[in-house]
């Protein structure tokens, strides 16, 4: 006996936004245009936070001093993503990773690249926590987080 199905309405919510970068993001991405990674140094606790912030989230002190951190650092943790969902900004396969850049006190989120991602077992043999990686830049700069193409293992 066939059961009558209830209606299912297929639709899409589409909402446009225009978001303000503000002073801090603008300064951070201006740094990207010059292939610099900038952080903010808290005048109270002295920690260097990357990306730049307008205030320290632990001391609540306003930060105006920008410091340049190294383009190199170590992998704190990483994950290989192979599945896809609607509207994903970075298409899989890709490796998202937390990287502690030399000179920074927080971990920076970006991609690990420059390696073959087709075989997950091989990837797991290659990418390790504690491994040193270095930023690889796009020749064309847009003042965007992806001006850094990815972080590549240092040989």
């Amino acid at each position: 006996m066939e059961k009558k199905e209830n209606y299912v309405i297929m639709d899409e919510v589409t909402i446009p936004y225009e978001l303000a970068y503000g002073r801090t993001w603008t300064q951070f991405f201006d740094g990207f245009r010059e292939e610099k990674i900038l952080g903010s140094k808290c005048p109270k606790c002295g920690r260097v936070l990357v990306p730049m912030r307008s205030f320290c989230p632990r001391c609540f002190e306003e930060i105006s001093q920008a410091v340049e951190v190294s383009q190199e650092g170590i992998i704190i943790s990483w994950a290989l993503t192979e599945y896809e969902y609607f509207g994903m900004p970075t298409k899989p396969p890709f490796i998202g990773a937390l990287i502690k850049l030399d000179g920074s006190d927080t971990n920076f989120l970006h991609l690990i690249g420059g390696i073959d991602l087709s075989n997950p077992e091989q990837v797991r043999k290659t990418v390790k926590n504690g491994m040193r990686v270095k930023a690889v830049w796009n020749p064309e700069k847009k003042g965007h987080i992806m001006d850094i193409k990815y972080f590549e293992p240092v040989k």
Partner: peptide
């Protein structure tokens, strides 16, 4: 959308 969205796959 400025930073983390590109690297966190759900």
């Amino acid at each position: 959308p400025f930073y983390q969205m590109y690297f966190i796959a759900g």
